Amino acid sequence: MHDLNFRPKAFLFDLNGTMINDMEYHTLAWYSIMTEDLGAKLDYQSVKKEMYGKNHEVLARVFGKDRFTTEEIERLSIDKEKRYQQGYMPHLALINGLDQFLKRAKNANIPMAIGSAAIPFNIDFVVDGLEIRHYLSAIVSADDVEMSKPDPETFLKAATALNIPPADCLVFEDAPKGVESALNAGMPCIVLTTTHTIEEFEGYPNILTYIEDYNDAKLNTLF
């Protein structure tokens, strides 16, 4: 689409790979658990392909839905998030330019929300660690939805929380499943090329443009 004449009334952000560039650390944590702890015969790239949705969905895709008990899934999920946070903590930072972008949106009275498949434990780790909670009017986490992306529930709930029609919301995403979720919600999207190549987003008609970070001058047209 590459059309930046759109004037959004709200910004909806995915978190991982979109506000922070941390997907490598999620993948490393899962890779460690799956291959070292659970004995899966997977390479790094195979694990990376499964990095979407809730933790129990990731485990079900890789090992089958009946492999683990509810208690085992909870334990593995917590262990994974602790490994992720330990690995990423020294590198915790907003993607370049996002701090100024958030300030500009706040000054322009454009409401903002996070719509993420992350659990509150990880969202709080980022939002409070980077002191950005005051910019956000709503947060929709994995615990707030029945269906993960690419289902539109995450972004539709964020729009409802902001009291903004879905068509007036602009989504920032880094993953094809997230772009598909925005498409299913009837929302245009800007893609961060932190995690996937532009070629991996072929066929999504709701993409306005691609950016490497929030210093991109194309974003000036949104205000």
Rank of each mutant, 00 (worst) to 15 (best):
L94D: 02
L94R: 04
L94Q: 02
L94V: 03
I95A: 11
I95T: 11
I95D: 08
I95C: 09
I95F: 12
I95W: 10
N96H: 12
N96M: 03
N96V: 02
G97I: 06
G97A: 08
L98Y: 05
L98C: 09
L98S: 11
L98P: 08
D99Y: 07
D99W: 04
D99I: 00
D99F: 05
D99K: 15
D99T: 06
Q100N: 14
Q100A: 11
Q100T: 07
F101C: 07
L102Q: 01
L102N: 02
L102F: 12
L102R: 01
L102Y: 00
K103D: 13
K103P: 00
K103E: 14
R104A: 15
R104Y: 04
R104F: 03
R104S: 14
A105C: 15
A105N: 12
K106Y: 13
K106D: 14
K106R: 12
N107S: 11
N107C: 01
N107D: 15
A108Q: 13
A108M: 09
A108I: 04
N109L: 10
N109C: 12
I110H: 10
I110F: 07
P111N: 09
P111A: 10
M112Q: 14
M112W: 02
M112F: 04
M112P: 10
M112G: 09
A113G: 09
A113Q: 08
A113S: 13
A113R: 09
A113F: 02
A113C: 08
I114G: 08
I114N: 06
I114H: 06
G115T: 11
S116D: 02
S116N: 04
A117W: 03
A117Y: 02
A117K: 02
I119F: 10
I119H: 13
I119Q: 12
I119R: 13
P120Y: 02
P120G: 04
P120R: 03
P120D: 04
P120F: 03
F121R: 14
F121Q: 13
F121L: 14
F121N: 11
F121T: 14
N122H: 01
N122C: 10
I123F: 05
I123W: 05
I123V: 15
D124L: 11
D124F: 06
D124Y: 06
F125A: 03
F125C: 05
V126N: 00
V126D: 00
V126K: 01
V126P: 04
V127I: 15
V127W: 08
V127T: 12
V127K: 08
V127G: 07
D128Y: 06
D128M: 01
D128E: 15
